[in-house]
Design a protein around this nucleic acid. Sequence first.
DNA 1: GTGGCTGCAAAGCTTTTGCATGTTC
DNA 2: GAACATGCAAAAGCTTTGCAGCCAC
Lengths: 146, 146
Amino acid sequence: MASQELLQRRIDAFPENCRKAGLKLTPQRSAIFSMLASTESHPTPEEVYSEIRKNTPSISLATVYKVLDLFHSRGFVRRVSTRDQVARYDAHVEPHHHLICTACGRIQDVADNAIDPAGVGVPGNTDFLVRDYEIQFHGLCGACRT
Amino acid sequence: MASQELLQRRIDAFPENCRKAGLKLTPQRSAIFSMLASTESHPTPEEVYSEIRKNTPSISLATVYKVLDLFHSRGFVRRVSTRDQVARYDAHVEPHHHLICTACGRIQDVADNAIDPAGVGVPGNTDFLVRDYEIQFHGLCGACRT
DNA sequence: GTGGCTGCAAAGCTTTTGCATGTTC
DNA sequence: GAACATGCAAAAGCTTTGCAGCCAC
């Protein structure tokens, strides 16, 4: 979970990161990145769209899709794996894990220190080059347990 | 990874499992279940469809979707989490983990004994009731490393 | 000024739904 | 024979694409 300062630092670094990547800095891109960085809700493109529209009413859904895909290809955000077929994005690119509610679909982050990476180990399959891993805990969230 | 016998036992038990679940036994359902149980390729509905069509040419894609959804809701198969937006199914319902190639999208199983479940631990979040978990290793498969 | 970006609209996929016909029990 | 499944076709998502006009650099 990102601290307040880390969040701000990440948002502040965005223009610089765009420049490094050869991307133009547009209000739409800034808005989308800030929104993703500020939330812990792993939003879908549709959710990003309606959130951004509050302050940037002229933005189009197609732009949201294009920008999310661009950010993903540059490693600015990551795509979260889900069992249902909706894209979900996350600006927390450092490795962390997820609690996924099978009832409501909500995805929560697991605090990094709750998992011991040393215990996981890397599979013995020598063919496969592991770049990162993610643990998904499926179950019922607080609101859905009752 | 299921042994030959386990696989056969699972396929043999299918009619009985349908009866227990109050489902009618149809050739389409048997074919879909056998196909899923016999493969390690985590196929999409489209892949299931074209495979089944080889022996059952009259089957429709809509039926494949309906049957897969039914099997999933009864716990006969599980849906695999992916970062791209295609459903993938797996008849290996016992907990196991996946190697996902970020280049070609191929999903391989990790042998159960390669992971020590005790090392993973359950997150400290007391609100969340964990039912199962899955570890995804993202990286490059043998064919894509070169 | 130029190249890249946005917004619109249309197209492309995947998945779901409704309904008449056919099949299992 | 009744209830449930299938197959077809149409509809309903979600996502991508093409292109004219606009904006950041």
